[in-house]
Simulated scan of single mutants.
Amino acid sequence: MSDKLARYRSKRDAQRTPEPVPGSPPPSSDGNAFVIQEHHARSLHWDLRLERDGVLVSWAVPKGLPADPGTNHLAVHTEDHPMEYLTFHGEIPQGEYGGGSMTVWDTGTYETEKWSDREVKFVLRGRRASGRFVLFQTRGKNWMIHRMDAPARDPFPPLDPMLPAERAKPPRDASAYAFEFAWGGRRLLVPVEGGRTSAAREHPWLRELAESFGSRTAMLDGELVTLGGAEILVFYDLLYDDGHALTGEPYSVRRAALEALGLDGGHWQTAPSWPGEADAVRRAARDQGLPGVVAKRLDSVYEGGRSKSWLFIPS
């Protein structure tokens, strides 16, 4: 019987990596387990592994599973892995093959609809990943993965930022608003999908932020400002989170979801917000030389373009 794990063993030294390195060929089995691991190696990717004949047949998927049938994702066919990898997680030392952090993103069972050397059709039944998929070979070890069904997932909102109307004085019903600094910077919407963002083309340092989201899909609204001589991206709204559009939710709900993300890095942070504190925030903006404050109705939905639900009040 051929040793399906020979290539796997040839790439690893059991004395140098915590990964399982079995010493003998695996027995044949008819199991139907799968695992998806989030792998922060040289570049973020997800490892999809399907149990087949006693091993885990594996593909590295740089952008994760496609969320809908309209997009195919690259899937690189890698060496078979041992069954122990169903539960493996940990830190593979840098310098070793696949060095980096690995966590179990999802696990469960799958149903095979077709399995050939060039095409694999299957149904995943996991906690986070479910649905019908097909893997098909394009060239050599490069395959593509296609989603065959349509999950319940909201489309991304349009890239049209909400803008405040100008007003000379704060609104009388201050308790109905949250007050934030008007930074006087450049507006930036940041879509995050598959651990990547198109905004990193112009701002490469955003790659680290996108990777921190893992497989979580999001759309962040913020502003590029200069603080203490450094360029900082301050975020003040969340328009999309993990498959759900938030644009129809009240600002208070979106703000709570944004704060729950805990965005605080070397180049980005969550902008402060003070409900009902019109006068104090306006004085602070004036003291710091900022152009003014923005009053945002706590019950306002997110609507592209200029809106009277957001008010710019000069300092």
Rank of each mutant, 00 (worst) to 15 (best):
T71S: 10
L65F: 14
L56R: 05
H77M: 08
P66C: 14
V61C: 12
W59F: 09
G64Y: 03
A60Y: 09
W46S: 00
L74H: 05
A67F: 10
H77S: 04
V76M: 09
P66K: 09
L50T: 03
T78E: 12
L74D: 15
L48E: 04
L50K: 03
A67N: 11
T78Y: 03
L65N: 00
P66Q: 15
L48H: 12
E51I: 07
K63Q: 12
V55K: 00
A60M: 13
G54D: 10
W46A: 03
A60V: 12
V76E: 10
D47F: 03
L65V: 07
D47H: 02
N72D: 15
W46R: 03
A60Q: 11
N72H: 08
E79S: 10
K63I: 00
D53T: 02
L56Y: 01
A75R: 01
L65M: 14
P62H: 14
D53W: 00
A75K: 02
L48C: 06
L48K: 06
V61W: 04
E51L: 09
L56V: 06
A67P: 00
P69D: 05
P69M: 05
P62T: 13
R52W: 12
V55T: 12
L56G: 01
K63E: 15
S58Y: 06
A60F: 10
R49M: 13
R49C: 11
K63M: 07
T71H: 13
G70M: 04
E79D: 11
H73P: 01
R49Y: 05
S58Q: 06
V55Q: 05
W46D: 00
A75Y: 10
W59G: 00
L56D: 02
P69V: 07
H73K: 06
H77A: 13
E79K: 00
W59C: 02
E51W: 12
W59T: 01
L50F: 04
D68C: 07
T71Y: 10
H77Q: 12
K63G: 00
L74F: 08
T71Q: 10
T78K: 04
L50W: 01
H77D: 01
T71F: 08
D80I: 03
A67C: 11
G54L: 06
V55N: 01
T71I: 15
H77W: 09
K63F: 05
E79V: 11
V57T: 15
A75G: 10
D80A: 15
P66R: 07
A67S: 11
A67E: 15
W46E: 04
